[in-house]
């Protein structure tokens, strides 16, 4: 993996360490291995889903349906198990359900070309709604120990889901930084039109991204159900916002083309540490939300400083609008000149 860190990643590491120090001073329990490992159980759910989310946001898309998909997959698994299917086949079908749900998002986005935010806003309601409708509003309890181990067990002292998360990070990092399709994701976010003209199967990559997001969300849904011991329709409600917060905190730009998995992992860790440490320090949950929201805004404001200065001198293409103009310029030579002149002026 690349050891060079970006400016905002250094900011994040500083933030992570300083909040760790403050929280350790506020509570004796915080800086114990047992507590930190327990905290990663929660981090793993957010962190897993944040991996494909980072790639989707880099590609200038968004997936708001992930938390609903977590609930839907877990509900499908729970209902099948309740009706007599052995637990692991039920889990497999649950994961397939989530993957198909993700594929449906991707299909509508890539083939029908409906904006991702609209599609996934709709499926956020649809998937959660189906989960609620199927459950009739009640949860499913009493899963076997072997399944609950997914959420409460350990491997060599490390929580099972944390191991899964670390494996996920490695796979995602290799894909995003070391494969051609992974690099194309940045291209899609920067200038999709250019990639299409280069003969790259943009639609197939986009479809793959949302399908992967569905698969990972389903996996996280299983882990969630195993951790809390219940499959319920309101599972993971609001997680989509935590996940997107972590990704944005990690420095991925919602305008696309920019972002790293290192940043996302740091974002997830900071969110988790804040929630865990502040709870131990007896800060009310509501006050924690205030702090986390403020940290998000402050971090994003810090990131803005450097790129903005660069923008003035080099007219970088990180702003969405000039890119839109550049895309249009392909069919309109007059615009190309105008855009080029504008770039040369400073």
């Amino acid at each position: 993996m690349n050891i060079r860190l970006l400016w905002r990643e250094r900011v994040l590491i500083g933030l992570l360490i300083s909040s760790g120090v403050v929280l350790a001073l506020l509570s004796d329990v915080f800086l114990t291995p047992a507590n930190l490992l327990r905290a990663t159980r929660y981090a793993a759910e957010i962190g897993l889903v944040a991996l494909p989310m980072t790639m989707i946001i880099i590609s200038r898309g968004i997936d708001l349906s992930v938390a609903s998909n977590m609930a839907l997959s877990a509900m499908a698994m729970g209902l099948l198990w309740q009706r007599g299917l052995p637990i692991w086949p039920a889990v497999a079908i649950g994961v397939v359900t989530g993957t198909l749900a993700g594929w449906l998002n991707g299909w509508v986005i890539a083939r029908v070309r409906v904006p991702a935010i609209v599609v996934t806003l709709a499926t956020l309601a649809v998937y959660r709604g189906i989960a609620t409708g199927l459950s009739g509003g009640t949860g499913i309890l009493g899963f076997p120990e072997s399944f609950l181990a997914l959420g409460a067990g350990t491997v060599a002292g490390i929580p099972v889901q944390t191991v899964i998360w670390i494996a996920g990070i490695v796979i995602a990092a290799v894909f995003l930084t070391r494969t051609t399709n992974g690099r194309y994701i940045y291209g899609i976010g920067h200038n999709e039109t250019a990639l299409r003209f280069s003969g790259i199967a943009v639609d197939r990559i986009v479809l793959g991204l949302y399908t992967a997001s569905g698969f990972v969300a389903a996996l996280a849904g299983m882990i969630y159900a195993a951790r809390v011991g219940t499959a319920k329709s309101n599972a993971a409600a609001g997680y989509e916002l935590s996940i997107i917060t972590a990704v944005v905190l990690g420095g991925t730009s919602l305008a696309g083309g920019e972002g790293t998995l290192v940043g996302t992992v740091l974002g997830v860790l900071i969110l988790t540490i804040l929630q865990n440490g502040l709870t131990l320090a007896r800060v009310p949950a509501a006050m924690q939300d205030v702090l986390i929201g403020t940290v998000l805004l402050a971090a994003v404001l810090t990131y803005r400083e450097r790129p903005m200065r660069k923008e003035v001198s080099a007219q970088s293409t990180s702003q969405p609008a000039p890119r839109r103009a550049a895309g249009r310029a392909m069919s309109d030579p007059e615009n190309t000149l105008a855009a080029g002149e504008e770039r040369r002026k400073p």
Partner: peptide, 22 residues
């Protein structure tokens, strides 16, 4: 301050609800 609106309002969504419940 030119922060994207989805980030600003995501933050104020969290902060305002948190503050009022607190």
């Amino acid at each position: 301050l030119r922060v994207p609106s989805i980030i600003v309002t995501l933050a104020t969504l969290t902060v305002l609800r948190g503050a009022i419940v607190w």
